[in-house]
Measured scan of single mutants.
Amino acid sequence: MDVFMKGLSKAKEGVVAAAEKTKQGVAEAAGKTKEGVLYVGSKTKEGVVHGVATVAEKTKEQVTNVGGAVVTGVTAVAQKTVEGAGSIAAATGFVKKDQLGKNEEGAPQEGILEDMPVDPDNEAYEMPSEEGYQDYEPEA
Results as ranks from 00 to 15, higher is better:
E114N: 12
Q62H: 07
V82I: 06
N65E: 08
G41R: 11
V15K: 00
E28Y: 08
G14T: 15
K34G: 02
P138K: 05
A11M: 15
E114V: 12
V26W: 15
G68T: 13
L113R: 10
V71C: 04
E126C: 14
P138Q: 04
I88G: 04
S87A: 12
V26K: 00
L113F: 09
G7A: 04
E57C: 04
N122L: 05
T54H: 12
V66M: 12
Y39G: 02
L113I: 12
A56P: 01
V3T: 00
V15Q: 00
V70W: 15
D115N: 07
A69V: 10
V48D: 00
N65W: 14
V70D: 01
H50P: 01
V74F: 14
K96Y: 14
K43S: 03
V15M: 15
A27K: 07
A29P: 00
K96N: 15
N103L: 09
K23V: 05
M127A: 03
N65R: 13
G93R: 03
E13Y: 05
G25Y: 15
E130D: 10
G25S: 10
F94W: 15
K34S: 01
K43T: 03
K10P: 00
G7M: 07
V55S: 01
K80C: 05
V26M: 15
E131D: 10
G31Y: 15
S42A: 14
G36R: 15
E123I: 09
V15H: 00
V74W: 14
A17E: 06
A140W: 11
V66C: 06
I88R: 03
F4W: 05
A19R: 02
T92A: 11
M5A: 02
G84P: 02
Y39P: 00
E137A: 08
T22L: 06
N103K: 10
G84I: 14
V77Q: 02
A124L: 04
I88W: 14
K32M: 11
V70M: 06
K43R: 10
G132F: 12
T64Q: 09
T33N: 00
A17I: 05
K34F: 05
V37F: 14
D2M: 05
K10G: 01
D121N: 08
L38R: 12
Y133H: 10
D2N: 15
A76Q: 08
G51Y: 13
S129V: 08
M1L: 00
A29W: 13
M5I: 00
A85I: 14
Q134V: 04
G67T: 13
T59V: 12
K34W: 15
T75G: 06
I112W: 09
K12Y: 03
A140I: 08
V95M: 02
Q24E: 07
S129W: 04
D115I: 05
S42M: 11
T81I: 06
A89C: 10
T33E: 00
V82G: 02
G73L: 13
V52R: 01
V15C: 06
K60L: 12
L100P: 11
E61S: 06
P108T: 12
T75M: 09
A85H: 03
P117C: 12
G47W: 10
V74E: 01
K102E: 15
V95P: 06
Q99W: 14
T44P: 01
K6A: 09
G93W: 10
F94P: 03
G51A: 12
K21M: 14
P117G: 13
S87Q: 15
S42H: 08
E83C: 04
P120E: 08
K43E: 01
G14H: 15
K21D: 00
A69I: 13
T59I: 04
L100Q: 09
Y125E: 06
E105V: 08
M127V: 08
P120C: 07
G68A: 11
K10V: 14
G47D: 09
V77R: 03
S129R: 04
T33L: 08
P108G: 02
V55L: 15
A124Q: 05
E137L: 08
T59R: 01
K96I: 03
A56W: 13
G106M: 06
P120N: 06
Y39T: 04
